[in-house]
Amino acid sequence: MKAITFEGAGDADVLRLVDEPMPEIRPNDLLVRVRAAGINRADILQRQGFYGARPDFGDSLVPGLEIAGEVVEVGPKAEGYKIGDRVMAIVGGGGYAEYARVDSSMCMPVPDVLSYAQAAAIPEVSVTAHEALVHLGELKAGNWVLIHAAAGGVGSAAVLLAHAIGAKIVFTASGEERIARVTALGGTVGVDYRKQDFLSAALEATGGRGVDVVIDFVGGPYLDRNLRALAPGGRLIQVGILGGTEGILPIDLLVHRHLRIIGTVMKSRTFEEKVAMTARFQKHWHSAFVDGALKPIVDRVFPLERAAEAHRSMEASENFGKIILSMDEASQSFAPLQGTT
């Protein structure tokens, strides 16, 4: 089968399209003919050597954490699916390939209204967004939430879910066009982080009270302002550290306002934790994708052999929503998709 691999950490040019052995399925696995795979920041970190040379956080050295495709083989103990079923799933690596194995408990049916490219834009970002907003952040209707990097994959998914919950959203993005697009998804107050102070905007929007939840991907440089943007009892959910790991922690504020800082990441979770996260998301949101109330946001689709170009696009923060790799021969040309598709 064709797959993307790399030897030695490096920039996007280390990615190569090669022939790899077919995955060997385990008793609880499904073998999936991958039609589309989502690209995530964790894939870039893996390529850069952040996770080391061994698949410590998965079961394949082939990159790729989320897929959509059809079942072509069913393990003897796999449950809930049969050959020919359309599925989407979070995988322990191996997504950038024509075939991938996945434990059946990690799969979700692909709604009939969605293409494979759209389905591949759901699992990783939406499960992560639900975990941060609802399970950890305890966001409820009428609450205020501050969502950083709202034009990115997880950020835009978080805006969609927060709006569906009935929360009010302060968000950061760059430029008038992106702010307008996030507003169209349900954002309440947009902040251009290059020109405006999100702390002032959050306090102004909430009448000085502060927001109930902050979803942050930046890390250290935002830590102090994120905590100052929280209302008493508020929760900072740290999903990423794109801006670095060192920041100012106002401990007095943390103590006197009864604030909580909670870290979460998908790739390093145990298999059992990933199953639980997927189940929580599916129970809460799958029906909304089935009936069309929610639609995944696909920015553009690249053919598998242009994975390096897709990585460079993500590293340049050119995307609004998800960047997808397509394995279908009929989709082997660059296909930009506008907005929610």
Score class of each variant (00 low, 15 high):
158 A>T: 02
8 G>T: 04
226 N>H: 14
195 K>C: 08
148 H>G: 14
64 G>N: 08
4 I>Q: 00
108 M>V: 09
31 L>V: 03
168 K>I: 03
179 I>A: 08
37 A>G: 02
315 E>P: 01
101 R>L: 05
175 G>R: 12
235 R>N: 09
108 M>E: 00
121 A>L: 03
150 A>G: 12
95 G>R: 01
294 L>Y: 08
187 G>K: 11
79 E>D: 09
333 S>Q: 12
287 S>W: 12
333 S>L: 08
113 V>D: 05
23 P>E: 01
223 L>M: 12
278 T>Q: 10
298 V>M: 06
175 G>E: 01
24 E>A: 14
70 E>R: 02
157 A>P: 03
135 H>R: 14
201 A>T: 06
285 W>M: 09
221 P>Y: 11
72 V>D: 00
337 L>F: 11
333 S>Y: 07
243 G>P: 01
149 A>N: 02
85 D>K: 13
207 G>F: 12
125 V>C: 07
15 L>D: 00
241 I>W: 08
90 I>Q: 05
22 M>E: 07
157 A>E: 00
215 I>V: 11
91 V>L: 06
96 Y>R: 10
160 L>H: 13
294 L>W: 05
191 V>A: 12
144 W>V: 03
197 D>E: 10
31 L>D: 00
50 F>W: 09
184 A>Y: 10
136 L>H: 06
191 V>K: 05
86 R>M: 03
328 D>N: 11
228 R>S: 05
279 A>W: 08
237 I>H: 04
159 V>R: 10
148 H>Q: 06
340 T>K: 15
232 P>F: 14
55 P>A: 15
67 I>A: 03
306 R>H: 14
147 I>R: 07
103 D>Q: 12
174 S>E: 07
193 Y>A: 05
102 V>T: 02
88 M>C: 12
214 V>M: 06
285 W>I: 03
261 I>V: 14
24 E>T: 14
110 V>L: 00
304 L>D: 01
47 R>Q: 07
217 F>T: 00
33 R>F: 03
310 A>V: 08
46 Q>V: 10
73 E>P: 03
3 A>H: 04
53 A>W: 07
303 P>F: 11
12 A>S: 15
68 A>Q: 00
321 G>V: 06
197 D>M: 10
73 E>L: 13
181 R>A: 15
180 A>V: 05
42 A>I: 02
24 E>L: 13
275 V>W: 00
296 P>Q: 07
73 E>M: 13
235 R>P: 01
288 A>M: 15
154 V>C: 09
258 H>T: 07
173 A>W: 02
42 A>L: 08
184 A>N: 14
205 A>I: 07
168 K>T: 06
313 S>T: 12
178 R>P: 01
251 I>Q: 08
252 D>Q: 14
170 V>F: 09
169 I>L: 09
204 E>P: 07
27 P>H: 11
324 I>Y: 01
31 L>I: 03
58 G>H: 06
13 D>L: 13
249 L>A: 13
263 G>F: 06
278 T>P: 01
245 T>R: 14
225 R>Y: 10
258 H>K: 11
120 A>R: 01
17 L>R: 04
246 E>M: 11
204 E>T: 14
5 T>P: 03
294 L>E: 00
139 L>V: 04
61 L>H: 09
